[in-house]
Design a protein around this nucleic acid. Structure first.
Lengths: 335, 335
DNA sequence: GCGACGGCCTAGAACGTTCTAGAGTCGAGG
DNA sequence: CCTCGACTCTAGAACGTTCTAGGCCGTCGC
């Protein structure tokens, strides 16, 4: 068989096995209506011809498309983790995933547009940045699940972590260790940044430490953390919470270059429990989002919507948990 | 319009604009055969109805599918960079990309299988790990382009960097700075690891330094680099080349923790010019693969194969270039 | 005045599936 | 012996598109 050859279709298999096309279809779908013997024979022939079903024709005909479109961004380690979870979840209930990436030169609208043409049954968006109104419009066309970003609109489903609570956990942990002067490096315009910042402020207030809490402008990446480190080095607190792990690693590096020992002089807490935060030489205390639960819920919510099943809440909020590793310790004794 | 509503089709637009279905199709494809006035009117109606073409039906009918399947792996920053380049390249010539990810729990065969069902016209595989024989079998069914991995089989196209040359560049740079005792942290069983290791050995020999060259077992990730650092600290060379940037950052961190100054005591060269290697606080001297060129060539090679165009060479080898940043310097003066 | 031609448009057949409706066959029950 | 139901199987119509063949106008060249 050469590359240019036409790929075998149901008709080819049917002809070779001397049965009708419909019967082959039945066998392929494992649907009732064929005897064990024929089933066997058809499968045999199909395997011999190396038949592969054409999912496009299949979906075209059968309307319901068991296809979930996922929009993710490159260079976001957390998105990669979430993709892993989504594949697992979709696989478990017999759905397929089709991916569309946001890159520095390919924006979210383009990514979504591509998926719409593929006629997927629902859209799962990882940390969408487009305006809520636009998401709402989109949601009139097909079910839309926004992950990691709250959307105040009744048409859009949301699966996210309780980010405020995540920062409560981080601050509680630090306070329990004895810290009082704690700073937060925030995520700037990033999705969820506001919730985390607010969570930090609330937690500090709850401990009566609002006077000691300081928020430093940060951002998404390592360079943002490094920049924040330079700012913090002027008058270092004894502990820092951050918007995410990437920023935290930049911060770690900047603080150490500035001559501080982590966690001896200063403690650092990340956010996301990205796979690299577990690496021995980073060993970052961090707030973990429950990826598998979130992925499972996002997929099942999308599927419920596709089936037009009534769902209880538009917004599902998952509690995070704190993963204590090596970057937090009691504050240094006052000199 | 509610989410459950049927999406408008060509027939809907045709009815609303009072023309034939075929004419609407012509207008949508921007094909010749419609007057400017009608074109205008049909487009108007289509926009009003919010018509979106169904790519499945389109591809089903028109056979040739302007769809390239791409298999990439999560947690590989370099793959993300390549995806960015591939989207650009495909976009430029009017092709679509459909992505399938390899995750810790979803292997390459599964990822490829998904794409085959989508009937994409060709496959682009980023650093495929499956046996060459399997790739060859696959290539009998549709054009297959392997990126970053050489495949010694006439059926599979290859677009890769001249990795041996990449290590020559790194070693030449270090030797020019005055280094003689140079180690290489290799990539273990990773794709392209052998070429880089061999390139290192050849380059050292060319400089008459084979006696000073040492190869340390490493791997893909930061932890592998950190492990190599521990080994190297026993009797440190003055410079190290690495399999990739991720491993290099782990190495950097490990060496610094071991009390060495980079680049004062020891120089480090990475490989890939990953986006994070450019970050100010990493600032890694590294070997850059020409991502855009590779992406463009991979896409056009795939397209040539789809068109059954004769192509000159099965394997396209792109020269890398060295990006000198802050982790390399002359060796310390002997005490 | 007439045939040829070009511009615009349409009908209907594909594409590879799934689904609906029904046609055979066979054994059991009356 | 007939009828019924269960079980296999099949024909043919969808699905939303593109493509092939043509039809119907004017206009142009003779």
């Amino acid at each position: 068989m050469r590359a240019g050859d036409r790929r075998p279709t149901l008709a080819d298999v049917a002809a070779a096995a001397d049965v009708s096309i419909a019967l082959v279809s039945i066998v392929m779908r494992d649907a009732p209506g064929a005897s064990a013997a024929t089933r066997q024979r058809v499968l045999e022939v199909a395997r011999r011809l190396d038949y592969q079903p054409d999912s496009r024709a299949r979906l075209l005909r059968s309307g319901e498309s068991r296809l979930l479109g996922v929009v993710f961004a490159v260079q976001h380690p957390f998105h990669d983790d979430m993709l892993t979870g989504l594949y697992d979840a979709a696989d478990k209930i017999g759905y397929e995933l089709t991916l569309s990436a946001v890159t520095p030169r390919r924006d979210e609208r383009t990514a979504i547009g591509g998926l719409l043409q593929d006629r997927c049954a629902a859209l799962v968006l990882l940390g969408p940045q487009i305006p809520a109104a636009e998401l709402a419009t989109l949601a009139t066309r097909l079910p839309v699940v926004s992950m990691m970003r709250g959307v105040r609109h009744s048409a859009v489903d949301v699966v996210r972590t309780d980010d405020a609570r995540g920062l409560h956990l981080a601050v509680d942990h630090l306070v329990a260790l004895g810290h009082t002067r704690i700073a937060h490096v925030d995520g700037g315009r990033m999705v969820a940044s506001a919730e985390r910042r607010q969570g930090f402020r609330d937690a500090m207030r709850r401990h009566g430490l609002e006077a000691y809490g300081k928020v430093v402008v940060g951002g998404y990446g390592e360079e943002d953390g490094a920049r924040a480190a330079r700012e913090l080095l002027i008058d270092p607190p004894t502990a820092v919470t951050t918007f995410n792990d990437l920023s935290a690693t930049g911060l770690l590096d900047g603080l150490r270059r500035g001559g501080l020992d982590v966690p001896g002089d200063i403690s650092v807490v990340g956010y996301d429990d990205s796979s690299f935060s577990r690496l021995a030489h980073i060993d970052l205390t961090t707030v973990a989002q429950d990826i598998d639960t979130m992925a499972t819920l996002a997929v099942s919510r999308a599927v419920d919507r596709i089936a037009a099943a009534p769902v209880a809440h538009r917004e599902i909020v998952i509690p995070p948990r704190l993963v204590v590793r090596g970057t937090t310790a009691p504050p240094p004794l006052p000199p």
